[in-house]
Structure formats: C-alpha cells, structure tokens
C-alpha cells in the first residue's frame, strides 16, 4: 500500500528510480496504481483549492 502511494507520488513529481519503476511494472498489478493515481489527483485539486481559499481571505 505504502509502496504504491510512494510510486504514485514519484510519478506526480515526475522522477522515479529506474529500478523501482521496473519493479513496479514487473511485480505490481495496475489497478491499485490507477486507483491511487485518480484519488491523489483529486487530493491535489483539493489541496490547490484549499490554498486558494486560504489565500483569498
């Protein structure tokens, strides 16, 4: 679970170690990554929106 989140975070940041990526692609199943990716995209939108709301006060 934590490994999936770490890998998705790395993908969001855009940088991942080649070894880790290889391992994810060879051993992981795609569905957890997709779910985590979609959820974290929503979290990102929420975070930016939160910052915008706080900044506008």
């Amino acid at each position: 679970m934590w490994g999936v989140i770490k890998s998705v975070l790395a993908a969001f940041f855009g940088v991942q170690k080649e070894g880790q990526r290889r391992q994810d692609f060879e051993q992981g199943r795609p569905v957890p990554f997709l779910v985590a990716g979609v959820l974290m995209a929503l979290v990102l939108v929420g975070l930016v929106a939160l910052v915008a709301v706080l900044a506008s006060r």
Binding site: G14, V48, A52, A55
Partner: peptide, 20 residues
C-alpha cells in the same frame, strides 16, 4: 477571487512538467 487564484496556481504548476 478564489477562482482566479485556483486557476493561477494550477497554470503555474503546469510549467513544471513542461520544463522537465
């Protein structure tokens, strides 16, 4: 104002992957 800020921040973010 909130919408302006949200879209400004997101637009600035998109510069990062483009820069990469």
């Amino acid at each position: 104002l909130v919408a302006e800020l949200f879209f400004m921040y997101c637009t600035m973010l998109i510069a990062v992957p483009t820069g990469v």
